[in-house]
Design a protein around this nucleic acid. Structure first.
Length: 369
RNA sequence: GCUGGAAUCGUCUAGUGGCAAUGACAAGAGACUGUAAAUCUCUCGCCUUCGGGCUUCGUAGGUUCGAGUCCUACUUCCAGCA
């Protein structure tokens, strides 16, 4: 069983440590999205330098390229990518259900590779096998995302996710015996915006032999507070919870942490960065805007990332306007650091009892417009 | 000096009688949440009550219901010959 120590609690919120085979994660923590075993535009050394504690890769992408057996041959995701720290993998469910041609059956999902159209099938068992081959410390159960937000579709997807969870747990237990290094499994709670379904899903997942929980199918902060209160009041307190895919908006992280989520991952910060949208304490700015041409101040005066310590907005503006790859690198360092650091401060504020003040002052300033 | 050719939005460019005018780049702005994303969308002559109105394709005339497109002259540039 994955070891998770809770150091402090405040209602649903908690500060803890997840002890993974590749190291500890001080929670709450933001996990870098390394879909294809790399955080886009960043080296693993840069990720370490900006304070990241863990990364999350994707089973769908790594199955297509380079193939999960190759990663196994390399010694696993952490070794292959030279990250050497704690790692997660997402099951591939989310990606597969975003493809245009998916055929769902009880057995699994048939789909075509977005790269070359080759036919693939993924099942709960094959996703587990793939994740064990990738060798991340923490795996997500193979889940089904609903195609729409209506109650019936959502329930159908949730029921299938539950049926698949049982098969994931069984296969996981089977695979534990075949590998010498321990790896851990999170169940994924579904149910969309429907509190009755969320409640049902949380109860179902809570009863399973898993090491933690992913909370999936959340797309905006709207309604998230109430939903997380329902879900995290049901999930067992002594196991970590990962809020899947949320964290582009700082408010997601404040709500998530306050309502008992321990880790987060999101592609937003690095994607925003590559597109020139940079976080500041006063909201995001678009560094490509003409008004930054002569602005020789850093993105944030009180930021200690490599980008802000060494470069100013006029320079970044120039790098973006000339489409230099350094623009994306520096912007990604800043944005990823900003979000990692925001969660780090949430953790610190929970520890010293200043969370509410920190939350209110941060959100008021960030969203003041 | 002669003979050809060319002049269209910031730049390059499409256009051969119905055209406020094609495409690319540049420029201006917006979007992005378990990454088919170094991507995508919008604006880009002036004005607008968003119906439309006005002024445009080197300059000045002309032919025509109608001209960026045809004709004449001029200006500038390019090529070849002197």
């Amino acid at each position: 069983m994955l070891k998770f120590d809770i150091k402090k609690k405040q209602n649903l919120a908690r500060v803890g440590v997840i002890h993974t085979p590749h190291g500890d994660i001080e929670t709450p923590a933001f996990v870098g999205a390394a879909t294809r075993a790399t955080v886009k535009a960043l080296t693993m050394q840069q990720m370490r330098d900006l304070g990241s504690q863990a990364i999350l890769a994707n089973t769908y992408h790594l199955t297509l390229r380079p193939g999960t057996e190759l990663i196994k041959e390399a010694g696993g995701l952490a070794e292959f990518s030279s990250w050497h720290g704690p790692t997660f993998t997402d099951s591939g469910g989310f990606q597969i259900f975003s493809l245009p041609d998916v055929k769902i059956s009880e057995n699994g999902v048939k789909f075509k590779s977005h790269i070359d159209g080759a036919n693939f099938e993924m099942t709960p068992e094959s996703s587990m096998q793939a994740q064990w081959a990738i060798g991340a410390d923490i795996h997500m159960a193979f889940d089904h995302l609903a195609k729409s937000e209506n109650h019936q579709d959502m329930k159908e997807a949730m029921d299938r996710t539950h049926a698949w969870l049982d098969r994931c747990v069984k296969e996981h237990q089977h695979l534990i015996k075949q590998y010498s290094h321990p790896q851990y499994l999170y169940a994924v709670v579904q149910g969309g915006t429907f509190l009755d379904l969320r409640s049902e899903s949380a109860k179902y997942c809570a009863g399973k032999n898993v090491d933690g929980f992913g909370i999936g199918g959340v797309f905006t902060a709207e309604g998230m507070d109430e939903m997380l209160q329902v879900v995290n009041s049901i999930l067992p307190e002594n196991k970590p919870r990962h809020l899947l895919g949320m964290g582009q908006e700082p408010i997601d992280l404040f709500i998530g942490a306050e309502r008992g989520c321990d880790t987060f991952d999101c592609v937003g910060p690095t994607r925003m960065a590559r597109n020139g949208s940079l976080y500041t304490l006063d909201g995001r700015i678009n560094i490509k805007n003409a008004k930054y041409t002569h602005d020789f101040t850093p993105i944030m005066l009180d930021c200690d990332c490599e980008c802000c310590k060494n470069y100013n907005k006029a320079y970044l503006h120039h790098l973006f306007k000339t489409d230099e790859i350094t623009a994306k690198i520096l912007a990604s360092i800043h944005n990823e650091h900003f979000i990692v650091e925001t969660v780090n401060r949430i953790r610190a504020s929970l520890l010293d009892g200043t969370f509410t003040n920190y939350r209110d002052s941060f959100l008021t300033r960030y969203y003041k417009k």
